[in-house]
Write a protein that binds this DNA or RNA. Structure first.
Lengths: 261, 261
DNA sequence: AAAGCCATTTCCACTAAGTGGAATTAAGGG
DNA sequence: CCCTTAATTCCACTTAGTGGAAATGGCTTT
């Protein structure tokens, strides 16, 4: 008993909708079109089911059909919903401008991200480069949670049970180097607990420092600052970490003072 | 007979999925959280159904639940899918860099958009401003189709039947000024047919010029160039129109030459 | 505190809507 | 022109979804 069979009666949710979302998710960054067969493979759904659901998604405007090659691509609707998400976000509204100003002042990259399953996704990423002044780069970009300062700061900010659930997933994901990686992740988490931030050099010659932003009624976010073309030094990490802590405090003040609707 | 009852057997698509998408769509730009009640109102769905579907969307990661206020907001997933859409887009991949270069060279804004129902949504919008060099502004932003150069260029680019369908929708939407507006729209469309572009000053002191991009196997796009703080003059519109035509030709060449996978 | 008043969620009987294997149709390839 | 391969439609089956009604759970009011 217990373990009630899902999708009996409907208390657990709606199967078709779940499947439809899974189909949208099958379009990972970089893929242009997918045929029903490919979608069926990626999602594990029966081909006839995929055929019907893709048709529905076309009618709903979430997919565009490419008749000539019997395939589909994500339609413009998905970015307009994405845009709605960004403009609705109270956090981004509150601190977006501050992030831009901070990037210019400190002459480094400033980013804000939150989690999508096991990935961190940027809500905003302000890249500072000495020449092109500042330009804000693609929101929606994903980076792996376990390897980045953003992800580890996020892990430090969430509830312990959820954290352990995610750590198990990482274990399953990367076959090799598991022990060392997990140890590193835990080190970063306690760094956050002790110093307020953690520093990680995920990409070569890039130093990134991040801190969690935990607020009632909002998902946990992570704020980061990063710098390219530097050699990784503890001193530099400390300096940026101090900037980040100060900035995070300012952000939290602003966010605490917002009208709750 | 005929007019087969929808959702019998499943040939017409999947009702729950359609409804789930409608719920996501209820989050228009600017809204933060919506409760199930509000969603039910906006979508016209029964409250119990909304309750189940929102739960599913939370499980699928498309919505975040705000337990304290029993409401929901769009989750980060939607921007990561949006990002996938942008990085997958062959058009944006092919001409994004060219758009940036053109914006810098001509010192004006360059945008690329396509339709989402009766709105035009920007895939990319490169804003030129004399000071902050160039920075690319929010993709996903929507502007009304019937009022903008982008929208009218799009209308000029699509099949006639689809165009008439949309024109009827505009008629229904704006109670007043209908005759004049529709006449204006038709004027813009024939301007595209004659000169390759149409010019519209939707917002005061902004001159915008757009042209359709029609390619086999892709939705119709519209490319535009615009300039702020100018007084609207035919001469200026012609000049920008000429730039735009030349640029569109270059774009189409590049797009024609891409490998068809 | 207690009671009343919301809004949201769960229950449940009903059956239509969705399912997926099999048949069919359509699209390339030789 | 026929054959192969993949997508789509059919269709009998039945489960999964539905929505009205009841129950729950928060909040406010006296």
């Amino acid at each position: 008993m217990a373990q009630a069979r899902r999708y009996a009666g409907g208390i657990d949710g709606n199967r078709s909708l779940e499947r439809g979302v899974e189909i949208l998710r099958a379009f990972r960054p970089g893929v242009d079109t997918l045929g029903n067969g490919e979608i069926a493979e990626r999602t594990g759904l029966p081909r006839s089911t995929v055929s019907r659901l893709t048709r529905t998604l076309v009618n709903s405007g979430m997919l565009d059909e490419v008749r000539a090659e019997r395939s589909y691509r994500l339609a413009a609707s998905v970015i307009s919903i994405g845009h709605a998400m960004r403009t609705g976000s109270p956090v981004l509204n509150a601190i977006g401008a501050m992030m831009r100003a901070e990037s210019a002042k400190r002459r480094l990259n400033v980013g804000l991200a939150t989690a999508d399953r096991t990935m961190m996704v940027y809500l905003e990423s302000i890249r500072y480069s000495p020449r092109a002044a500042l330009r804000n780069v693609v929101a929606g970009q994903q980076v792996p949670m376990e390897l980045t300062s953003l992800g580890r700061a996020y892990l430090a900010g969430i509830a312990a049970v959820e954290r352990e659930r995610l750590l198990k997933l990482f274990k399953r994901r990367s076959a090799a180097a598991t022990r060392m990686l997990l140890a590193e992740v835990r080190t970063s988490i306690s760094a956050v607990e002790h110093n307020g931030y953690c520093a990680v050099s995920w990409q070569p010659a890039v130093l990134a420092v991040a801190t969690p932003i935990v607020l009632e009624g909002l998902p946990v976010y992570a704020l980061n600052m990063s710098l390219q073309n530097v050699d990784r030094s503890a001193a530099l990490a400390n300096e940026i970490g101090a900037y980040l802590n100060a900035f995070a405090v300012k952000c939290k003040e602003v966010l605490a003072g917002r009208e709750p609707e």
